[in-house]
């Protein structure tokens, strides 16, 4: 079993796709580095912190993009974002079976402020345009940097999102909120609080990720491959169901002070027990309690 959490983006791709099938697009040898970081006299990376290419996943033809959290926290600049947009549009052009995005990002790369913001919005539009064209886009989050900022919106735009318990997902990171609103609002050093608020288990119980897996590459691979096979269904009806679910969520939990209160209302009275449950046991227990949209008849 190889950990997803500690693997680099390259190792994650290698561990997930079928052996010897990955073909990198704009590989490091092409040196598509960020011109803006150069201007600021900051280190660049030959892949600008995102690795893209085509591969087979349990036989299915996929395009894949993997963000490298180690380089600038996986933050999105002009080049980085354009590579992700390219891979999404290429998938449509080449009629791939799906797109897989291994997300690990702090969001907009502040050193490329405006270019980063625009790039993130282009990635989100490209994800949705791919889905509208019938292309399943599968996201995965399980690295140490989590998925924050605009890329958390991108994650929630995916057809299907796979997370591990260790994965974290949120729009504004705890440090950002603490800086803006004070430690009373969000104590970013309270690890248990951060985990309860942003971690994979809470996201799974709320229905904001579709699969919760153990922290290993094989588990991510199987969950992603299954989601690609399930295909895409993005329609006015599915979005209306989601709308009804999000309305209900707000009515039920809008005043809940803590994740533990939400879990109690969902039928998990012992927050401490939940924290030590392995992912597969939690998934087995969660069943009907999760808040997910009602299915649309096909």
């Amino acid at each position: 079993m190889r950990t997803y959490y500690e693997a680099t983006a390259r190792k994650r791709i290698e561990g997930i796709v079928d052996a010897d099938t990955f073909r990198e697009l704009l590989p490091p040898t092409e040196r598509t580095v960020s011109p803006h970081l150069k201007v600021l006299d900051l280190p660049v990376a030959f892949d600008d912190g995102v690795i893209i290419g085509s591969a087979r996943l349990q036989g299915q033809r996929i395009l894949i993009g993997a963000q490298e959290g180690g380089f600038m926290g996986g933050a999105v600049g002009e080049v980085h974002g354009a590579k992700l947009v390219g891979v999404l549009e290429r998938a449509i052009r080449h009629r791939a079976d799906g797109v897989v995005l291994l997300l690990e990002s702090g969001g907009v790369r502040l050193q490329e402020a405006n270019a980063g913001l625009i790039a993130v919005s282009e990635v989100i539009r490209a994800i949705l345009a791919a889905r509208a064209a019938g292309m399943p886009v599968i996201g995965a989050i399980g690295g140490q940097y989590g998925c924050f900022g605009g890329m958390s919106i991108a994650a929630a735009c995916c057809t299907h999102l796979v997370m591990s318990e260790e994965g974290r997902l949120g729009l504004s990171g705890p440090e950002v909120i603490e800086t803006a609103r004070g430690v009373e609002e969000f104590d970013s050093r309270d690890r248990a609080l951060v985990w309860r608020t942003t971690g994979g288990k809470h996201r799974y119980l709320l229905g904001d990720c579709d699969a919760l897996v153990e922290d290993n590459l094989e588990a991510f691979r199987d969950a992603i491959a299954q989601a690609v096979r399930a295909g895409e269904r993005f329609s006015l009806e599915t979005v209306e169901r989601e709308h009804a679910m999000l309305e209900r969520r707000l009515e039920r939990f809008g005043t809940a002070p803590d994740a533990a209160d939400i879990w109690r209302m969902l039928g998990f009275p012992e927050a401490e027990r939940l924290q030590v449950l392995p992912a597969h046991e939690l998934v087995a227990l969660a069943g009907v309690h999760r808040t997910v949209p009602s299915p649309v008849e096909s």
Binding site: R125, A154, C157, S172, I177, E185, T197, L206, A259
Partner: peptide
């Protein structure tokens, strides 16, 4: 909105939902 409560409720999902509605 920079609040723990919005994060707890999954504000990124609400933002994404709005983006999806625009796409639809």
């Amino acid at each position: 909105r920079l609040r723990r409560r919005d994060e707890l409720l999954g504000i990124n999902r609400y933002m994404a939902h709005l983006a999806k509605c625009v796409e639809i």
